[in-house]
């Protein structure tokens, strides 16, 4: 099975977020961009399938500023991906999920692809728009929020679950297919030190993303705001557990108005 796994460099969860002086968007200065948890899970899923199906290969692709994509792609190589492709695009194209999907398509069409895997949503923007947009652009079926993805060799179909508001769905789908994964239900492996060292010298291919029509639909960041700093919890003083409970319930109903 030829598997393409799409990776997005996102700010480290421990990063302190702040807006640019003009207030329009996140200030990337000094921020570390890493392989997000959701994407680590996608790489792990791809590697599990590769290990289960002889003759498989995993191709990692990533779109964004080159310094960031290269780090993420090297991390993927260190984990065991077979090839890496960086997609270069204009900065504006990084900022619209549909344009991101178009960039990913450009790379995917140059690679053998039976299965395209993505994390559920990128750890920074939490959009979840890309899997569907990519499926439509490639003319392939797509599913987001997938858990427990397996390959059924007998029927030559993917089998997976989806946890939706309706309940736990079970599906089967033939290849080719685009799959957006739900949370990290697998336990992503850690790259070994020697593999990390080796990944530093791995080649990274380059693909240029297409530019969309100038007046076409798009989106751009207009304002990035931090919530007022949380000043820390108002601690409830009490002598007995019952008193703590009574005070909290009163606060929640009268002050915070979330109860009953």
């Amino acid at each position: 099975m030829e598997i393409v796994v799409c990776l997005k460099p996102v700010p480290d969860a421990e990063t302190r977020a702040r807006p640019l002086p003009d207030g329009t968007r996140f200030d990337p200065e000094g921020v570390k961009f890493v392989l997000a948890g959701y994407d680590e899970s996608a790489v792990e899923q791809a590697l599990l399938l590769k290990e289960a199906i002889p003759g498989s290969a995993v191709h990692a692709i990533s779109l964004g500023a080159r310094s960031r994509t290269d780090e993420v792609l090297r991390a993927a190589i260190a984990l065991g991906c077979d090839s890496a492709t960086a997609i270069e695009a204009s900065p504006a194209a990084f900022e619209d999920p549909i344009a991101v999907a178009a960039g990913l398509r450009a790379a995917i069409e140059g690679l053998p692809h039976d299965l395209v895997l993505l994390g559920k949503q990128s750890g920074d923007e939490e959009e979840g728009l890309v899997p569907g947009a990519l499926g439509e652009l490639l003319g392939l079926p797509h599913f987001g929020f997938v858990v427990d993805l397996r390959w059924d060799a007998t029927s030559q179909r993917l089998r997976f679950g989806r946890s939706t508001e309706a309940g736990e769905e079970s599906w089967e789908a033939p290849l080719p297919c685009v799959i957006g994964l739900q949370q990290a239900w697998n336990d992503p492996r850690t790259a070994k030190l020697p593999a990390i060292l080796k990944s530093r010298r791995a080649p990274i291919a380059t693909v240029r993303a297409p530019t969309g029509p100038p007046e076409g639909p798009t989106s751009e960041p207009a304002r990035f705001e931090l919530p007022p700093p949380r000043t820390g919890a108002k601690m409830i003083e009490y002598r007995t557990p019952a008193e703590a409970a009574t005070k909290l319930v009163r606060i929640l109903s009268e002050e915070a108005k979330v109860f009953p």
Partner: peptide, 12 residues
């Protein structure tokens, strides 16, 4: 970046 990737792996 290479040194950082080693350090990050150990940190993780």
């Amino acid at each position: 970046p290479e040194l950082e990737s080693l350090r990050d792996m150990a940190r993780k």
